[in-house]
Amino acid sequence: MTQEEPAIAVSGLRKAYGDNVAVAGVDLEVRRGEVFALLGPNGAGKTTTVEILEGYRHRDGGSVSVLGADPQHADKAWRSRVGIVLQGTGEFDDLTVSEVVRHFAGFYPNPDDPATVIRRVGLGDKERARTHTLSGGQKRRLDVALGIIGRPELLFLDEPTTGFDPEARREFWDLIRDLSAAGTTIVLTTHYLEEAEALADRLAVIAGGSLIAVSTPQALGDRQSAPATVSWRTADGTVERKETSTPTALIAEIATGFGGEVPGLTVTRPTLEDVYLTMIGHR
């Protein structure tokens, strides 16, 4: 397997639950070493797609290759190269943080040092705490610790920072950047656009079971090329709005019509969030 081969290659992926089509023909490629964010509203097919890649669900059609293998037939060796942080936390109520992490380390052929990983996710002072005494954010950190204890080549993070305070979120971002710098490929699903913008090399927007955009966060949210909204007051006093990718030309045209100043003129560019909401709204 060469480094040039993508970490994940998906084409024509389809999955339906009865009459409800969850994923309707997704093509996707995640390169080795990149942080790839998957965005989309609830019910868009995000989790289904990710869980097919993780080997939890069987697909109805299309082809999927993750680290060169079909996750549907995941074996032990493949599992040891993939780290998974699920959306829900599976708790081990009566065990301590250290016991759980050490136990999971034993499942992997080449695990990281448990104490180091616990410190790394910011649970150093909670090592001897029973997991049921942890706060929501701390439990999430434990989830992350269990996801990375096996030194995965590929790490799936499903809404990892839900319930984090802003400071914890920043620390978590630093951890992800560290892992990425060390060569780990990361697939992230999130509802936070600033998180995708901060972490992702590329992102994909999924809606209605299809990919509607794949790009870098800058290009997706780029104000320079995204259509701007120009609004002004017409002669009879009503507000006119026009969306255009050439605002300068439009304003020049309107200005000519007015023979000078345009009353109530505004030009607005969409934020990343606006771009995203427009995309999923137009489906």
């Binding site: 060169g68 032990k76 060796a77 493949w78 081990f92 052929p109």
Partner: peptide
């Protein structure tokens, strides 16, 4: 799989089973 595939878990099956049993007993006893 390919050459990059790592060797299987170092712990033998017996050790894996016993470890899991120990964990279960620990959880029960607590």
């Amino acid at each position: 799989m390919t050459a990059l595939t790592q060797t299987p878990a170092t712990a033998g099956p017996l050790a894996l089973g016993l470890r899991q049993g120990g964990l279960e007993i620990k959880q029960f006893s607590r």
